[in-house]
Design a protein around this nucleic acid. Structure first.
Lengths: 219, 219
DNA sequence: ACAAAAGTGTTGGTGTTACACCCATGT
DNA sequence: ACATGGGTGTAACACCAACACTTTTGT
């Protein structure tokens, strides 16, 4: 790094791409955009865009997120940087991928004119570029993370039932969990505070509503 | 991403930076380079350099690694991408950080002319740029990873004693471990195969030598 | 009364921690 | 004989997995 003059070298383009997750209808959804221009015209792809020359990476990711979803204050985490020389056939593009978790209750339309749709993570069309790989990577990261860090709450509204919370885990892990063990563990964790409210939904016993209690960031 | 023409935009420079770890004298060491030119002239910094326009990111990291250490076939993992606009005072530089684990037995000199030295991770000078943050991040990542994934072997020669292995864990975690529990767990894991050899070192009972048995990458 | 989802405990097994002494060698 | 690090087992506890019935509501 010391002996190079960067101006002598051709520079790659740098973009951010976003894997935006939400949960709807007991399914894990990812937001995709239909490409209007080549390459991969007509194909679905992750939302993303170029990083401004004075723009922090995370700011670029947040900007794209807000353009596509209209939502600002959500969980956002850098995932991985993909830089294969041929991943974009036109030119060298290095992309810093992020993933975001969005409560279904906050999903509104984006302001952007591009065609956007939510697809099941488990059933979506083949994507442009290496975006299938990026989605797989995001899913794997999220599955690991949810075992240790309480990120599931980022996909729920402020108040939720234990069954809803369990469904978040089940949909992400793509497996079923034991109801009694799940409730025992989650209640023992101290992450939840019971509101004194219930929610009545259908002709059966109403469910108790809980909220997430923010952690001391034991630093 | 669809409606921009990248050529209209100024592009950032992209570099890779490496946190190269090894273990010597029961201490965790990191390789640093003394900067010969501004900015931060005379300061110590992580080895790194620009990514070639047609060069994969990992290839750039491996190239730097080999230039500095003369070693090729080691553990290398992408860490995080740092892109604060002002992290390099001269211009916009986005750096993709990697970390590498190097067996102390393979440490030779680099071919590069720059002044390089191994420093204790727990006692090193303040570094140039945001490199202190990168080292901290690498250490944190490695500490998490070693709990789940057998990366400790990447810091040892092919044959090693259980005490040496335990010292690797202790130096990385910066804590002491119980000898009996450590041996019980590591032997039960099936990661080790006993060679039938021992090593005699000092006036005490010789230690049994083990090798790492490569895992099925359960894909 | 019945259909539907909410809610609730116990048991066996597995893994983790804490802890102290004998062994093989060189001098 | 002693100094040095190598090597070994057990008991208490915490955590995890398996498993079935009762409760509350709307119709």
């Amino acid at each position: 790094m010391t002996k190079y003059d960067s101006s002598k070298y051709e520079k790659p383009s740098v973009t951010v791409d976003l894997v935006i997750f939400t949960i709807q209808e007991r399914d894990l959804k990812v937001l995709l955009i239909r490409r209007g221009i080549p390459p991969f015209q007509g194909k679905w792809a992750l939302p993303g865009g170029f990083v401004g020359i004075k723009e922090p990476l995370e700011a670029a990711a947040l900007r794209e997120l807000e353009e596509e979803t209209g939502v600002g204050d959500v969980y956002l985490e850098q995932l991985y940087t993909f830089g294969e020389p041929k991943r974009d056939p036109r030119m060298r593009v290095i992309t810093v991928a992020y993933y975001a978790l969005l409560p279904w209750s906050e999903v509104v339309g984006g302001t952007d004119a591009r065609e956007a749709r939510w697809f099941s993570v488990y059933d979506h069309p083949k994507l442009a570029f290496d975006h299938d790989k990026i989605v797989d990577y995001a899913l794997e990261r999220m599955r690991n993370k949810i075992m240790y860090v309480p990120i599931a709450f980022q996909l729920l509204p402020e108040k939720f039932t234990l069954t809803e919370l369990q469904q978040v885990y089940e949909v992400i892990l793509n497996s079923t969990l034991d109801k009694r063990n799940f409730r025992k563990k989650i209640l023992a964790s101290g992450l939840l505070k019971g509101t004194r409210q219930t929610r009545l939904e259908g002709r059966h016993r109403p469910a108790a509503l809980y909220t997430f209690v923010p952690q001391d960031l034991g630093a």
